[in-house]
């Protein structure tokens, strides 16, 4: 049993906290520094949940912004195409109008 107990003593040796621990605690005790709370699992989970929510909201906003930007680009393209088509139609109409006027002039001169 002694061998095993020696191993236990070895495993259970004392360890030191992080550097500056005593100074920090003394400063907290005298009110020069606020006590640190980092280890509470509820706090850890709350922080993780808050970070996840923030990432999700940012992601959704970014997605919506991207979707909006894409829709705006598509609308501009559609308007541009429509404008080009209208210009083409306009040019065609001008041509037809020129032809019709030419025919009318010819007929008047024949009369």
């Amino acid at each position: 049993m002694n061998e095993f107990e020696d191993q236990l003593r070895e495993a259970m040796h004392r360890r030191e906290p992080g550097p500056g621990f005593a100074g920090r605690v003394a400063a907290m005790a005298t009110g020069a520094r606020k006590p640190v709370r980092r280890s509470n699992p509820v706090w850890r989970w709350a922080m993780a949940a808050a970070a996840a929510c923030l990432m999700m909201v940012t992601g959704v906003q970014e997605y919506r912004r991207h979707q909006g930007e894409q829709a705006r680009r598509q609308l501009l393209l559609a308007l541009q195409i429509t404008s080009e088509k209208l210009s083409l139609v306009d040019r065609q109409l001008e041509k037809v109008e020129g032809i019709v006027q030419g025919i009318m002039v010819d007929e008047r001169t024949k009369q």
Binding site: P17, A29, P35, S39
Partner: peptide, 13 residues
């Protein structure tokens, strides 16, 4: 480590 340090901190406070 964090929990042990916080416990030690609270004990000394």
């Amino acid at each position: 480590r964090a929990m042990a340090e916080e416990m030690a901190q609270d004990v000394f406070l």
